[in-house]
Design a protein around this nucleic acid. Sequence first.
DNA 1: ACATCATTCAAGCGATAACTTGAATAATAG
DNA 2: CTATTATTCAAGTTATCGCTTGAATGATGT
Lengths: 222, 222
Amino acid sequence: MSISPKLALLEEYALVARALSAPARLMLLEQLAQGERGVEALADKTGLTIANCSQHLQQLRRAALVTSRRDGKAVIYRLTDAKTLQLMDLLRIVAERNLAQVERILRGLSGGEDAPEPVSREDLSAWIAEGSVTVLDVRPADEYAAGHISGAHNMTLTEIERIVPTLDPATEIVAYCRGPYCIYAHQAVAALRKHGLNARRLDGGLPEWREDGRVVETAAMN
Amino acid sequence: MSISPKLALLEEYALVARALSAPARLMLLEQLAQGERGVEALADKTGLTIANCSQHLQQLRRAALVTSRRDGKAVIYRLTDAKTLQLMDLLRIVAERNLAQVERILRGLSGGEDAPEPVSREDLSAWIAEGSVTVLDVRPADEYAAGHISGAHNMTLTEIERIVPTLDPATEIVAYCRGPYCIYAHQAVAALRKHGLNARRLDGGLPEWREDGRVVETAAMN
DNA sequence: ACATCATTCAAGCGATAACTTGAATAATAG
DNA sequence: CTATTATTCAAGTTATCGCTTGAATGATGT
């Protein structure tokens, strides 16, 4: 028995928390929540250098939040299991519940107005079946191609600004992006509502949608 | 809108994780899970200096994991809400699910044998009602006095070693302590089983028991 | 075997965190 | 008001983290 098994245990728990304590690693986890990725793709998406990215990934692996496998020359990383996603979610919930700072940042995004309640995935599913809703996927094109909600239109923020005049104010619009950590959908909804459109955010992003076992299309149909 | 609202948000989430990334702060949270405490009491229990303890508490407060109120000269800290406890639990679950290291430490405590499954709080409640179980509270006397499971006997590890011969191997024994972070109950069960007794750990500790809304006695009846 | 590409390792630098010490602030008692 | 007690603030030291750079490793194809 070591000198202090208690401390050793706490040290292990702290290691997991420490792995989540750098914005760069949270970005990596958000990317990995979309699906497994190689080191270079992750470095590209997050703007980190390859070496730096690799080191962060190893730290996440040490905390067992992600695992990796070799595929030829490439090493592919992925989230270990759903617990990792749960932990990220709870972290976000606690931060958003408690930190006035976060409120202010999110309010800044929606131009001072309070954003409306997000749409549940269940509701969106039903509306899609009725065809009574326009769904916007506010993610980069490659992520859209890798999988998106059936019938969703992929468009960037600037593209959205451009097509605003062609949209019907009576139609319900639902925007989604990578998930709770991602602010694209927040920004899209803010932009649309500023023009008087009936836009709301989806609760969660594509990872949560997929987790629910709902339909995900992998080919473009824009 | 700031230069990078996305990074600012991630920074906030990271702040919460960082607050959980030091063993000293996990110890403080574990203490606070037992109930609200003043700075000096926390410093005593954790072995930190007063000043150091105060600084850790402020960091926890910045992350909104704890809140404080003044009571005369003293400042009393407490967990902000149940979310804090949930976050600690999930952190522990992920660490224990994933880290072989943790397994090895826990196995080291139980002398090489695998520990039996913990007893659910529901089962223990029923057994207590039947009177068919001996309950051991393996925490310091002051924490026992502040609240314990009805009918539990308070005893330290060394006291347990001493009374081992007087215990009936046929009787079910259930030990509990502060909660999942605490290893007293692990050690007690290991010690008892080494003597052939029928001992198991309670799932969770007193905070979880109380959270369930079960009976907690505050006077000694040892 | 050799060349190539993706990833990892290793060393170094600047910034940040943890702990200590000693002084400052706040609330209460005399 | 002054003294006392509990807590917080501030400065300084040591250790650790995050990032960069350049070399090393591992798998693949010629």
